[in-house]
Design a protein around this nucleic acid. Sequence first.
RNA 1: GCGGUUGUAGCUCAGUUGGUUAGAGCGCAGGAUUGUGGCUCCUGAGGUCGCGGGUUCGAUCCCCGUCAGCCACCCCA
Length: 423
Amino acid sequence: MMKIRSIRGMNDLLPDQSPLWQYLEETVQGLLARYGYREIRFPVLEQTELFKRSIGEVTDIVEKEMYTFLDRNGESLTLRPEGTAGCVRACEQGGLLNQAQRLWYRGPMFRYERPQKGRLRQFHQFGAEVFGLEGPDVDAEMLVMTHRLWQELGLASHVHLEINSLGTADDRARYRAALVSWLRERSDRLDEDSRRRLDSNPLRILDSKHPDTQALLADAPRLSQHLGDESVEHFRRLRALLDAAGVDYQVNERLVRGLDYYGKTVFEWVTGSLGAQGTVCAGGRYDGLVEQLGGKPTPAVGFGLGIERLVLLLDAAQAVPDSIARQVDAYLVGVGDVQAAVFTTAERLRTLCPVLRLQTHCGGGSFKSQMKKADRSAAALALIVGEDEAAAGTVTVKDLRGERPQQTLPVDEAAALINNTNP
RNA sequence: GCGGUUGUAGCUCAGUUGGUUAGAGCGCAGGAUUGUGGCUCCUGAGGUCGCGGGUUCGAUCCCCGUCAGCCACCCCA
């Protein structure tokens, strides 16, 4: 019989990897909480229309990368390709947008793409969104916060920040017209993909990887010269705040981002250590989106952070903390016919040592093999209950990693010892 | 959707210019050591050589197809 495999690009997280994910998730969540962000959860599945209206009809995400299918009643549904649209929908529906909100979420996103390093069909993101604040102070706060994250994760030397301003919708429309007419006169020098984008999404031509196209663009009209006073001032103040906070950045005029709803501030944290998919965290301002989805005009900024990419980067940067290797603090073994005593001892210890991660050996086997398992578990302590201990109500505490001598103590005293010595 | 590359043990990989029982290291299980793990030594389990077809006396090896993984393009976190 044919074995069933997981769907392409949808990976399992096996237990050897999950401690690293937990470490990362706890670090990020802790940081968000320290900046006053609150968690929001919303479905993985939404009406297709939501994504078409927010991401943009002619973006690649909507055109060819969405997991879309018909529900039993004929309604078109889509597995979320990103979080912002659903977050806005949920906030609007939940009546949250009549005041400022700092929110975060985490979970799987889905895009029908060819998998490669750092890119999966089901991938996982943290998202943070702020509503009701015009910035640029919150824009800067987000960058200061993510900057702190890299420091806490030990990745500060592996990422750099690129920022740009896309201006207001009007600024962009004027620039788009100027760029398109300029490029059209030289369309014979454009690569095929870029020529196609002339009609669909001309700004994306700016960050084409094609060398000839990049060379051509050197003389093209510049977005920065089409920004209105408001956008220029917003960007200037953002840079001043970053300077004051000591956050290094590069202004990248070619940084345009792929989703239609961005305007004014856009940014990417990029690493060179991950191959072709070097963007680890990216986002920007989207002041028009809430209104576009039927709400009141509401300024907003947000970013997404790719968990898989961050896990890869932690490995590449050798920034995985040693502490996650130990998932069990103590391993309790039983010698002889002492099963009842094993359980009562273990339960007593779990009551008296509430933070102790205590694994009891099950499945029998020789004392020697049980000790071997205790060692392999990476536990710091082996706890031994033999016939003698069972009869006396004691337990033997053996330090597997350090120099402390082995001791046989009444269970309550052993618990006190463990509480005093175990981290 | 296009291109490149790789599929041999749980993992990392040897191997055969086509020839009997396909190997190693790590891991796993047991033992040397009947209440003490790690180090050492011994033993053992574990393989449709991705799948299907073809050539051949004979294919893990050669040919064709197919599937999957990886990397890259496009795009994005």
